[in-house]
Simulated assay, not measured.
Amino acid sequence: MSISALTTGTAGLTANQRALDVAANNVANANTPGFQPQRAQFQESSPAGTGVTLSAEGRRLSASENTPGPADASAASRPNGVGLASELTDTLVYKAGFNLSANVVKAADQALDSLIDVKT
Results as ranks from 00 to 15, higher is better:
10 T>N: 11
24 A>C: 00
20 L>S: 07
15 A>T: 05
52 V>H: 08
13 L>H: 06
12 G>D: 06
35 F>Q: 06
68 P>A: 14
88 L>Y: 09
78 R>L: 00
71 A>F: 07
39 R>W: 03
47 P>K: 01
62 S>I: 02
58 G>K: 07
85 A>T: 13
81 G>Y: 03
88 L>F: 10
100 L>C: 09
81 G>T: 00
103 N>W: 03
79 P>I: 06
70 P>F: 10
6 L>Y: 07
63 A>I: 09
77 S>P: 02
89 T>W: 01
8 T>M: 12
32 T>N: 09
77 S>C: 01
1 M>S: 14
34 G>V: 00
83 G>E: 00
17 Q>R: 10
76 A>K: 12
109 D>C: 03
61 L>D: 13
118 V>I: 12
58 G>P: 07
5 A>C: 05
1 M>I: 11
60 R>K: 13
91 T>V: 09
15 A>M: 02
75 A>L: 03
107 A>W: 05
51 G>R: 04
110 Q>K: 15
30 A>Y: 08
83 G>W: 05
116 I>M: 13
71 A>C: 02
68 P>Q: 11
22 V>Q: 03
5 A>M: 14
120 T>G: 13
72 D>M: 04
84 L>W: 04
86 S>R: 13
2 S>L: 10
64 S>L: 11
66 N>S: 09
106 K>V: 02
1 M>A: 13
27 V>A: 04
87 E>P: 01
114 S>I: 10
20 L>D: 06
76 A>L: 12
113 D>N: 12
60 R>L: 13
49 G>R: 01
45 S>V: 07
72 D>Q: 03
109 D>Y: 11
74 S>I: 05
88 L>K: 10
45 S>K: 15
5 A>K: 11
